[in-house]
Design a protein around this nucleic acid. Sequence first.
DNA 1: ATCAGTTTGTCAAGAATTAAACAAAGTATT
DNA 2: AATACTTTGTTTAATTCTTGACAAACTGAT
Lengths: 214, 214
Amino acid sequence: MSKSSISNSVIRRLPRYYRFLGELENNGYVRISSRELSEKMGLTASQIRQDFNCFGEFGQQGYGYNVSDLRIEIGKILGLDKQTPMILLGAGNLGKAIAAHIDFRNKGFDLIGAFDVNEGIIGKEIGDLKVRGIDELSTFCAENKPVAAILCVPMGAAEKLANTLIECGVKAFWNFTHYDLKVTHKGVAVENVHLGDSLTTLSYCLNNLNNSEK
Amino acid sequence: MSKSSISNSVIRRLPRYYRFLGELENNGYVRISSRELSEKMGLTASQIRQDFNCFGEFGQQGYGYNVSDLRIEIGKILGLDKQTPMILLGAGNLGKAIAAHIDFRNKGFDLIGAFDVNEGIIGKEIGDLKVRGIDELSTFCAENKPVAAILCVPMGAAEKLANTLIECGVKAFWNFTHYDLKVTHKGVAVENVHLGDSLTTLSYCLNNLNNSEK
DNA sequence: ATCAGTTTGTCAAGAATTAAACAAAGTATT
DNA sequence: AATACTTTGTTTAATTCTTGACAAACTGAT
């Protein structure tokens, strides 16, 4: 209720801070200054101090920041102390790979179900989950109350499915479809991934390498 | 040599413009105004006009933009008229899924090889490619001159592998590892994806939904 | 051909983001 | 305990990005 209006730029940097602090901790760092962190991360020390100050005063003059404490604080800000129940929609190549590849527990989520329409996929195992038919979706949601969903379905199915899920109480979408999911409903969070756009951007950068020098 | 210093914000929007223009064309649109496009994309018309103007004058007063022509122009800007040879490093779950899921040809690339260290994976098929052992990498590069690489290897292997590939002539990296690949070498393009950070951001947004209203 | 309406390209104002600067408050060593 | 050094939190300045405004130029209908 307190910390409204954190800028999007700051939010986008938070996961990276969290990641670097974890690595520092693993490498035995107990404390770190904004200057040293800025060198490791390729940012300015000023920006780091200002980012952290959006959420409170975590450092100490003359000392710097306690790595472990700061990491825990940022983890709380990111909601990583929670375990939001999440389901996967679309258990094809990509959905399966994401379910297997991501460490959900350390990202604030708990993957509790997977669904597909393809008869050839239904019943198969993904990790310790069995893929369910999409017809079981509403019953499952009523019983297990998932709050987040991964969308790995074809573009055409995305919008309708998202609306169904919202009716079932889903409040967060991690969207890998080619459909730009809009945040029309209030109180719903959307993260559009768009791997294709990412690769397209790389194409631009590659083809304009020589021009980029000022 | 002409169009230096296009801002990163503009570049990040280009793939989305290209995508939307493709959909418009498929839906039979011949022309579109910045105002109408802005409504569809959720941007301001002013921003769209200024973005396009970074690259030339593609519109016509009183008429708008020709959808097909504009799409082709943006495609050229993005380098999508090329077919840059690309290889995949790490053909596990994620690598396989990406290779299968992405339409490389329409993103300016051509996937010509896949490599792994795991004996259980070497020799398997990914699409029409056979996974090669990593020991074949330098020979393959010498013969086939790949210019881009997808990194889907464990974090610990990323940096060393990237340096090897740069020596082999690779100039663009699509990096899915947890390692933040830095662009130290001049003339090398890097696109770090970091799916974990994306999910972490979603966790933040979900846990701060109520606070985000001003 | 003229005229009302539309839409671009561009300039200038406004916001937002990033960087620099520095006093205040700590640390560490003598 | 005193002094030199370090580093934060915060203010101020610079830069970048976005939006608003409007003349110039075109369309399309009369």
